[in-house]
Design a protein around this nucleic acid. Structure first.
Lengths: 219, 219
DNA sequence: CGACCAATTGAATTGATTCAAGGTCCGTGG
DNA sequence: CCACGGACCTTGAATCAATTCAATTGGTCG
């Protein structure tokens, strides 16, 4: 299972010809694959920051509960993503499984991770956070959803069909909307003809350019 | 001028006993201080990513223009902050001077920066981005403003008086609101008695706990 | 088939934006 | 020294987008 990580298809498309994972894996002892059921917690907000993990399959939500009980999902991580990198000593976010998930502990060959490897991971995490900052700050409901679907679309390149492992609940907390608004935004995109909804957790992208047009800004 | 950077007061309060700057400065050749007038551009969106800078005085806005002409300010940087760290090869953000600004180029003693130093800067930048993600995602107008003021308050510890070097325009684009809404949110906080407004660019914090209560969530 | 949970839809409400006036501050020039 | 102009800020009224509340539909598993 790990061997396939050295192939390109295990690394999702990224703009700079970065090689986070490839490099990382040369300095890391591969650990056994662990399986987690849906809604299992990999690590929790408030814990001391611990090891890094590599997602082998399934989807993980990185989320955070506020003092008054609301939830924000900063990202979804899936196959090939590295999990668990955080600034500070205490976890600000939890990592929870959306569906059935397989992850590997990443244990550095020498006692500590190489700063170069951590830096590469930090770069990627930062880029994601900044992108999401723009989504939340500048886009309205259907634009956020369009951006989200485009993101999934290019990650899981499955011939125009997107699989939504997470439920509306999770999408809403990721885009900082309500589930009702997510539902209506989906309908807006459907009515505009850019997507179809063959099933509750499946989306067919009919018109990628049209979807991109919906996002209008992130550029 | 640079010597004072080795003193604590040049480093603003941070949660983990991090020592970004102290460590950084031991591996860096101090360069001459440059002065920029208000609205000058230090670097621009679209340029290749270049060197790092250290802010000595003044305030810099890190901002980004979208394809359709809107602007988002991801952060304001002031004395002691390091400027110019970005993932990727091309700048996603510009750095522009809010007021009169003094910065120093940070040039590594050896050819490249130490990964450890870059990692420390990345940590801080990421923490800021994540915090702002929460502000934009979970808070409404007066809560965002309260969070913003609290941030300024603890940076520039000047006995309850906050100086606002940037104009409403900039605050609005940072909090992703309109200037009118910023104005009304200020009024809300004033009417609640947690701040006073002695002048347009000066704020007196009357009740820190009250301000924190306004943010209610970020925890 | 019925029960339960997730998702959708509709109607009323809230919060922020837009549009349109005023107001304040400050520098310049009479 | 005061009047004027312009930039910035504040305030008000109307509009719009998203949320809330409530009901209904759809899907899945006993």
């Amino acid at each position: 299972m790990l061997s396939q990580l050295n192939h390109d298809h295990a690394l999702r498309g990224m703009e700079p010809p970065d090689s986070t994972l490839r490099s990382l894996l040369t300095h890391v002892r591969p650990c056994a694959l662990s399986f987690y059921p849906p809604n299992a917690t990999i690590y929790a907000q408030g814990e001391p920051v611990g090891p890094l993990y590599l997602v082998e399959f399934g989807t993980v939500r990185i989320c955070r509960l506020t003092a008054d009980g609301r939830r924000q999902i900063s990202a979804f991580q899936s196959k090939g993503d590295v999990l668990g990198f955080e600034p500070g000593h205490e976890r600000e976010y939890s990592a929870e499984c959306v569906d059935r998930v397989g992850i590997r502990l990443l244990r550095p060959a020498s006692g500590r991770f190489l700063d170069a490897d951590l830096l590469a991971i930090a770069h990627r995490t930062l880029a994601e956070a900044q992108r999401h900052m723009t989504v939340l700050g500048l886009m309205r409901a259907s634009e956020r959803l369009a951006a989200f679907l485009l993101d999934l679309h290019e990650r899981q390149d499955a011939g125009g069909f997107i699989d939504l492992p997470m439920q509306r609940n999770d999408i809403a907390d990721h885009l900082c909307l309500t589930i009702e608004t997510v539902s209506r935004a989906l309908r807006t995109l459907k009515d505009a003809g850019v997507i179809r909804l063959p099933g509750v957790s499946q989306i067919e992208v009919m018109d990628v350019a049209g979807l991109q047009h919906f996002t209008r800004s992130v550029a």
